[in-house]
Design a protein around this nucleic acid. Structure first.
Lengths: 367, 367
DNA sequence: TTGTAAGCGTTATCAT
DNA sequence: ATGATAACGCTTACAA
């Protein structure tokens, strides 16, 4: 059974193969690159055999060095903990596979310093392009890459002052979709909950669209008196989170008690119109909210507040939370396609690809 | 503000820097490698300046080619969709960072073919070692790597016929812990639900330990009559899943109806002793179960069956499901440490590192 | 303290 | 059809 060549210790090189096949390196190289037309069947066979015997595998590094391109692309991820990221990644991998690229996946784990380090590292490994799901806001972080002439495609968020291809959710559309849905369902007190958004374009757009819809709806169109507020939830800072959640609790309890009443016990079933709606800007926020509400109000927390979230994490179906699903797989796929075109030299001006979200209505907003 | 060197198109090489600094490549190389003792402060300054001016960054590929080592290690992941994987990854990244390694993350996405392809690819990039969370059962898949003399560390599962370092959960201990907990809570009908386990060592061990505990408990020790069954849930095959779930439903409904009765409606609150317990071998299984039960029995499905799972996904807390948490971060960290030692030439016989799981009791098993 | 030259494993150029 | 030979960007004897 040990047909496998006994551990050669050192891996065979092209020179070894040439010797083994009794020929020159050039022919081996030709064989490797599929230039069969210039190889006599006889020589070809000898080479084939030698490669088998030596279990030879060409060294990509050396190839890359010589050719000037190594088929490597960098994929910088802000946070693998976010299901969004993993899903995008699937699309990226599929596209890479299809295009013969090898993604170097780097996980910044929400650390700006990591992000910088990895970008630098990727540059150093001479990747041919980078897909960036940035957390760092600053264009200068990307400078080393862009300046080196390495194509960059942004995912999910754009970066101020940096003009590149970018692909992500149609944030405006998604936020409108969600807000309208809540209005239609009769909610008249809606909280948009989002991580600090000044610096992150996608959050920014979502928040803006939310406010806009609520501002406009006064125009004679039914739900004239719906009230919308934005609550910032800084997940990186436990104390800040506590404060924000406390604010939320006051609102929830006030709403339940109708006019700031006390009889929480008696009012088991809250009057439909007085249930607050929470619009989470993404899954991590939604999870934080859900965990808190559950801890505070028990298993039936959803009778206190309706939750709607952008992103569609696996627990949404389980808990019956309405969501807006992002076309994550496609986002990843398209990003690679864009990047690939750039690598091949396409020179058009920066493109934006905004894909629509899909509303998935569940029990949380159907009551 | 454009202090950044204007896009040099081609990246500067060591030769460029040498010329710019008016010296030879050797000195540049020395500078890069921190051999400051052999550089006059004067030259050193000139080099520093030249590097700045050219925005020079050494080419790792070329370095690796010459040195014979590139600080790259492969990390092959079976399934990024499994939260376990992401958590392990965090540990891996931290350790890599600490040891100056760069992990090439490869995601097989449950495709054996992908696994093979990636392993081959990693070999080709001359990684110095590989950490494998294998799905492929076959030792021969790993052969190309091991045969090339590349150290391998296995994570979570071992592979038949392959002797290498491996680090993972103490499966036996974890399964015992879970089973005992259920017995203590008075459950007398326990189903161990697991993906096909013949070929996967970790599943195999968990299932065996489960059966063992239930077999032993007859020995005069209280819960003499607890009954344990193993249910295979082949997540890769929707039809098979349906069949398995149907079997489960029959059991659940029979238990609820006490003696196969009909009055499902009347028996809202089931007699405690007659609630079935489900012991999920990992998070994906648990999710599948929870989703099904919720779809079939509604939001209060937990009154029909108690769920306990190995792995501690984010939704466990939200739904109050009892879990056994794996020390995922540490698993990843240790794996890298093992690998690093091997890379540095350590020759001891294959080591196993089994880390204990932690029981987290939640509402699902507290009623 | 500094520089020259010979590789590392490939591919590209140019002969034959 | 085949094969020397010179790069690719770097490190490392070995000189000077």
């Amino acid at each position: 059974m040990s047909a496998a060549p006994l551990a050669t210790a050192r891996r065979a090189t092209i020179t070894d193969v040439a010797r083994e096949a009794g020929t020159g390196k050039t022919s081996i190289s030709r064989y490797l690159n599929g230039e069969m037309s210039v190889l006599s069947p006889e020589l070809r066979a000898r080479i084939e055999a030698a490669i088998q015997r030596l279990d030879y595998q060409p060294n990509q590094m050396a190839r890359g060095l010589k050719r000037g391109r190594n088929r490597l692309i960098g994929m910088l991820l802000a946070d693998l903990t976010n299901p969004y990221t993993v899903e995008v990644l699937q699309g990226v991998e599929a596209a890479c596979h299809a295009l013969g690229l090898m993604p170097l996946i780097c996980h910044a784990a929400n650390e700006v310093e990591m992000e910088r380090r990895y970008l630098q590292l990727l540059t150093t490994y001479r990747v041919e392009g980078v897909i960036v799901n940035a957390l760092g806001v600053r264009e200068e972080t990307l400078r080393p890459v862009g300046a080196g002439g390495i194509p960059v495609v942004l995912v999910d968020r754009s970066v101020d002052g940096l003009v590149t291809d970018m692909v992500g959710l149609d944030n405006r559309g998604a936020a409108e979709l969600g807000t309208r849905h809540l209005l239609e369902k009769g909610f008249d007190d809606i909280w948009f909950v989002v991580q600090p958004f000044e610096q992150v374009s996608s959050r920014n757009l979502r928040e803006a669209a939310f406010r806009e819809v609520l501002g406009n709806n006064g125009n004679g169109n039914g739900k004239a008196h719906a009230r919308g507020r934005t609550l910032v939830l800084n997940l990186g800072d436990p104390e800040a989170v506590q404060a924000s959640l406390a604010e939320l609790d006051r609102a929830i309890e006030a709403a339940a008690g109708v006019a700031g009443g006390v009889d929480r016990q008696a009012r088991r079933t809250v009057a439909p119109g007085r249930r607050i709606a929470l619009f989470a800007a993404n899954a991590p926020v939604a999870l934080c909210l859900a965990l808190h509400l559950k801890a505070r109000y028990g298993a039936d927390w959803q009778t206190r507040a309706a939750l709607l979230s952008i992103d569609d994490p696996e627990w949404a179906e389980l808990t019956g939370v309405t969501t807006i699903r992002q076309p994550t797989y496609e986002i990843g796929y398209r990003a690679v396609e864009f990047l690939h075109e750039r690598i091949e030299g396409v020179q058009t001006t920066a493109r934006d690809c905004l894909l629509p979200g899909e509303l998935i209505v569940r029990a949380s907003t159907s009551g």
